[in-house]
Structures are given as C-alpha cells and as structure tokens.
Design a protein around this nucleic acid. Structure first.
Length: 410
RNA sequence: GGAGGGAUGCCCGAGUGGCUAAAGGGGGCUGACUGUAAAUCAGCUGGCUAUGCCUACGGCGGUUCGAAUCCGUCUCCCUCCA
C-alpha cells in the first residue's frame, strides 16, 4: 500500500489545521482531488513565504492530485485584512493585472500543466462582473456578521479600525471557493494559517448552497527560530523572480539560515527523502554546514534550476572557502578600464555596485573596518583603486563578512 | 453632518519656538568571538563635490532673526454623537 500524501505533508511540517483529517485521507487515497491555493497580486513576483503552498501543491500533484493556482486579480482589488494591523494600500487595476500575469507565469514554472494536470485561473474573471445586489441576496445573506466579528483574524483591526471594503474580503474568498467547486469540482483549499477563517467561510458557504462538505487545510506560518517572519531580509522579501533577487543571493539566503531551522527548512523546501533529512539535521557544530549547503543547493535548484544552483554554489565557494571555486559566478560588474586608470574611488565603487547603500554608508562601514579590496581591509576614506589592484580575476570587493562583488575591466 | 484626537526617521515612540539630523526602544549594519550559525559585548544607523553644505517631522501657504514645535488651509486616519 502506498503512503497517503497527507502523511507526507504532515511529517514534513505542512499541516497546521485541517477541517476533517480522516475525510481528507479518504479522498486522497480514493480519488483525484482537485484543490486550490490563492495568490494575491500585490507584487509582480511570489516570495519565499508563498513558496510553502507551492511546495505543498507540488507534493500533491506528484501524488496524482490536480492543483488550481488561483490568481487573486479580483480579491486584490479589495485587500485582505486578515492578521494585518493596517489597511493595505489600494493598487491600481492595471498594476494588479500585470502582477497577476507575472505570478501566473511563475506558477507555471513549478507545476506541471500538460494534459490538464493543473490549472491557473484569475478570480477577476468572475469577481469583477458581480452585481452588487444580486450578490448580496445570493451570497451575502449566508454570512453572519456576528460570527465574522468574532474571528481572530479581525481582532487587531477591530481595535484599530476596519473599513467595509476589507470586511468583504472574506466573503469574496469564500465565493471563490464556491465558484471553483462549481466549475471544477474543487474540494480542498490550502492556505496559510492566518487564512483559516477565510477558508472556513468558503467551506461553510459550499455546505449551505450546495449541501456538500469540502475541506480546508492550512500550513503553519513560518518564522525563523529568532522570531522573524520567514522570507524577509533587511532589503525586503526574498523574491522568487531572479531579476528581483538573484540566484546567488537566494542561495546565500538559505545557507545563512539559523542552525535550529535547518531540519524544518529541509522538510518544507526540498524534496529530499525524510531519512536523508534526518541524517543531515542530526549533524552538529560546524558539520551542520553540510546540511545548509544541501538545503541551499536543493532549494535553489527548485526555483532557479540546476545550472543556476551550481553557479551560485561555485560563486559561494570562490568567495568563502579560499580553495578555488568559480569567481565567474560571483556577482560581477564590468567597468571601463579608463576609470581605473583615473583612479577609482573606493567609496564610489562600493556604492555603485550596491555593496553599500550610498557613499556615506560606505564611508561609515570603512571607518568601522568593514570594507575590503582583494581581502585586504581598506582604512583610508580617500583610497582609490588603480591598475595595480587588478588581478587575473578582476578586483574583489567585500563589504562586511559576507557580501562580495567582483569588478572586471574592459 | 457635529464634537474631539491624531499624522515624526525602516517600525514603534518622545519632543510643543533656538542647545534637534530630532530622546528611548525595536529592527538593521559593522567589528570582536565563531562555523558564511546562535548567543554575547562594542560601535554605527538621511544624503553630498564633507570640519562645510543640502534634504527631513502628512501637503501647501504664512508668522518669526529662527518652526517638528505658533497661525491658516488641504488630505488622510481614529474616537464619540447623528
């Protein structure tokens, strides 16, 4: 007997809450389950936080079930207040549409779409056309304001203020589920644990209108062991789009994770078998670096492909382990040789390639001993790079301990 | 519609005419220690053609030698009343 995919998800840490675990197991073993996850079109790329559901969808698809990636082109016009402290900025319709297209393209990269194995669809398709009064009469009457107000997700907002537009979000999301149930026979919705209330609203609506019981399942909201939200760096989200967040940085993001998170991350963000994960996360001390290396590599392969992952790994080796590696894979900027001849200010070039935010930032960092050229600390604010600094591999710039950038000249 | 309260740097939050590039905290960054980890300690945390200059306390305009601080006006938010 093959393993139930529910167990796979569960042992890998994808499950926070489920409506009816037994029923869901049954479905998974007896039929092809059509399930969906929604993605807001608030940005033109998904980020690591969204990747959890994407990975869950991949597991389920592998087990023979059929995912629907729902692009929230309609719901993003409203803005989900769940768990937020403040109202979201309203985005223009054009922006939402463009974002939706980018996200759709990204999902195509993770899921298999041939032979109707998966679907992506935009809820703008049905939401934007709705007639207000008709909608209220058919759908709105099934929602109890009393119950909605009691929900945990709105708690903070009831203290700070919640506008009517946002209050409608849950109803629209519930309606999405209904629509997908009617169109495709979708019987499972996945989402983050903060979505639990929204998911239940959909389950409820389908029960009332269709007399059918459908399922909902949430994954735990990931935080790092140090308490921060998963997928955030100083400069913002960890995007999956290589143009917004390079594969090199993506690899660095994973390899720099907290020791305590390694096992959790391996389970969710790689497809390695559980016993391999157990072996890796049992490593201790400096050894655990091996586990992080594997994590970074595997995660980068899934999002950016093998070639990019190898390049990122080679770049990391060149920078961090002084035994070879491939400097070509490091972030590199090409500069005209004439600038070098004129004397290229160290502060200027650090700011220019983005190792520091500004020249002032570079100056500060230099004064604190965090600016290196070819692995030698620079302590003179007015230092300049000259042809003398150039090597066969260009000039290696470093800000702090971990951020490298290579200059080559032409 | 009426009455009141509010908008400060990445976030929270002090400041109510000059000593304010703006207390304090969080976050972030750098250094030391390490393992590209955590914890800890120290420093830094608007920009620039840099012992000075420019920009900044919701927007615009005004008072003043001088405004985040006072006045007018606009925008947005909150609370109570209808």
């Amino acid at each position: 007997m093959t393993k139930n995919v529910f167990d796979t998800l569960n042992e890998r840490g994808f499950v926070a809450q489920v409506t009816d675990e037994d029923a869901l197991r049954q479905q998974f073993s007896n039929e092809t389950v059509i399930f969906y996850t929604g993605y807001d079109s608030t940005a033109n790329s998904l980020h690591v936080g969204n990747l959890v559901t994407v990975m869950a969808m991949m597991h389920l698809q592998q087990a023979g079930h059929r995912p629907i990636g729902l692009i929230g082109g309609g719901t993003t016009m409203i803005g989900d207040p769940s768990g937020k402290t403040e109202m979201r900025q309203m985005l223009t319709r054009e922006l939402i549409e463009a974002n939706g297209r980018s996200i759709q393209a990204q999902l195509n990269h993770y899921l298999k779409f041939d032979a109707d194995q998966a679907i992506t669809i935009n809820n703008a398709e049905w939401l934007l056309e709705l007639n207000y009064v008709t909608f209220l009469r058919e759908i709105g009457r099934h929602f109890s304001v009393n119950r909605m107000l009691a929900a945990e997700a709105y708690k903070q907002r009831l203290e700070r203020g919640l506008s009517f537009i946002e209050f409608n979000y849950q109803i629209l999301q519930a309606y999405d589920y209904l629509e997908l149930f009617r169109r495709y026979g979708c019987t499972l919705q996945l989402g983050g644990d903060d979505q639990w209330g929204n998911l239940l609203a959909g389950v409820d609506l389908i029960r009332r209108l269709e007399g059918k019981t459908v399922q909902a399942m949430t994954y735990p909201l990931l935080t790092t062991s140090s308490g921060a939200k998963m997928g955030k760096t100083a400069d913002g989200a960890v995007w999956l789009d290589p143009n917004k967040f390079s594969p090199y940085d993506y690899y660095q993001y994973w390899i720099n994770c907290d020791d305590r998170d390694v096992e959790k991350l391996l389970k969710i963000f790689t497809f390695l078998p559980m016993d391999e994960i157990k072996r890796l996360s049992a490593l201790e001390g400096a050894e655990i670096r091996e586990a992080k290396r594997v994590l970074a590599y595997e995660a980068t392969v899934i999002t950016h492909g093998e070639a990019e992952a190898q390049a990122a790994e080679a770049g990391a080796q060149a920078a961090f382990s002084h035994k070879g590696g491939d400097v070509d894979s490091m972030p590199t900027t090409t500069v005209s040789r004439s600038r070098l001849a004129d004397g290229l200010g160290v502060l200027e070039i650090f700011a220019e390639v983005g190792l520091t935010k500004s020249r002032s930032d570079a100056r500060r960092m230099l004064q604190q001993g965090g600016i290196y050229v070819n692995d030698n600390r620079v302590d003179d604010v007015s230092a300049e790079l000259t042809a003398e600094d150039d090597t066969d591999e260009g000039i290696l710039l470093r800000a702090g301990k971990k951020k490298y950038h290579r200059l080559v000249f032409e």
